[in-house]
């Protein structure tokens, strides 16, 4: 998978095969560990024969850990893929929904939805989607002028929008009632524990988005050459861009509603994968899904097991790993 002169299809199969194994291992490890220790054999038996064995262990596994690990997997996959798409569309390897304020916009929408008493689904996610589209418009409208802005100024604009969103979130929190504050704050920092088994089917909404993005992987390669070059190679650049933006914003807002703001996954995972397999999105899209899922499961595992008492918001772990890595990549690209 590292040899770039080989045909693409065998490379894709090898890559997805090996990443699937890693992903499955992480998923199993996520299920097997928790406050009651790490027990792989028991988890495996419970998974194979759910009705046999210890009832309490079964409840913990199916009611608490399975939704949590599944949410981590879906959120990681979505955020990594979201980062990948934004990096391609903005032709900037440092772009990411979190850094550009798209996640922040979703969060504002979601908080407003929660405060207004919208339903968990589809009310709050739709409010979040609205918020993300608004921030997207804020970032992109200055770009539609005659001279397209450089990607640096775009990133700068994104950072400003992100800061603004942060301020609005804080404003909303200070204005809201005491009982809600603790809840919203914890959710904002990235909380994977809120999903109940009944909520799991909601996550399948991201699957069509994954499919759309995978189908547009080859045009995405061409978009890396610029809108005009892509157009001259037969790509409907405007249509592809719009479809990608909508699919990405939608799935990211859904994830933000479920588990708050988790940064850096969308930055770190595509970056590392790009170093390994090169810039072809037909490889990077499936690789980001599997790699992002595995990465967030592992971060969540750390968040659950490092503190002796209770757990950390997973956003803290991804930021602790991601921020230094981000600085390192910036430093490397500046060299």
């Amino acid at each position: 998978m590292f040899i770039r002169t080989q045909p693409l299809l065998p490379r894709l199969l090898m890559l997805t095969g090996s990443l699937s194994v890693i992903f499955a291992a992480c998923f199993l490890a996520g299920l097997a560990s928790g406050s009651s220790g790490f027990n792989l054999a028991e988890t495996w038996n419970l998974l194979r024969h759910p009705t046999l064995g210890d009832q309490t262990a079964g409840t913990i596994l199916f009611e608490i850990r399975l939704p949590r690990v599944t949410l981590a997997a879906v959120a990681g996959a979505t955020l990594a893929l979201g980062g990948l798409v934004f990096q391609a569309l903005l032709r900037n390897p440092l772009a990411e929904p979190y850094i550009l304020g798209i996640s922040g916009g979703s969060a504002i929408g979601a908080i407003l939805g929660m405060l207004a008493g919208f339903s968990t689904f589809p009310g709050v996610p739709l409010a979040a989607f609205g918020g993300s589209m608004l921030t997207l418009a804020l970032i992109l409208i200055p770009m539609t002028g005659r001279a397209p802005l450089g990607s640096d100024s775009l990133l700068l604009g994104g950072v400003m929008v992100n800061a603004f969103c942060g301020a609005v979130i804080m404003l909303l929190i200070s204005l809201s009632r005491g009982s809600q504050v603790q809840h919203i704050l914890f959710w904002l920092m990235g909380d994977l524990s809120r999903l109940t088994p009944d909520g799991l089917p909601v996550l399948t909404v991201v699957l069509p988005c994954f499919l759309v993005i995978f189908l547009l992987a080859r045009p995405m390669n061409l978009l890396l050459l610029g809108q005009e070059a892509a157009t001259s190679l037969g790509v409907n650049a405007r249509g592809v861009t719009l479809a990608l933006l909508l699919a990405t914003s939608f799935m990211v807002s859904l994830v933000v509603c479920q588990c708050g703001l988790i940064g850096f996954v969308g930055l770190v995972v595509p970056h590392v994968l790009r170093l390994l397999v090169g810039p072809d999105h037909r490889l990077l899209v499936p690789a980001s899904l599997l790699g992002g899922g595995a990465f967030l499961i592992l971060c969540d595992l750390l968040a659950r097991t490092i503190p002796s008492d209770g757990d950390l918001p997973v956003g803290i772990v991804t930021a602790l790993i991601g921020a230094p890595l981000f600085l390192f990549l910036l430093w490397r690209s500046a060299r």
Binding site: N221, L224, G226, A229, G278
Partner: peptide, 20 residues
């Protein structure tokens, strides 16, 4: 000009011509 932010290999670049 050709953007270089995401460096493809020569072969990967050339084969993009088959896109249409």
């Amino acid at each position: 000009q050709m953007p270089m932010d995401f460096p493809f290999t020569v072969e990967e670049t050339v084969i993009m011509g088959r896109s249409p």
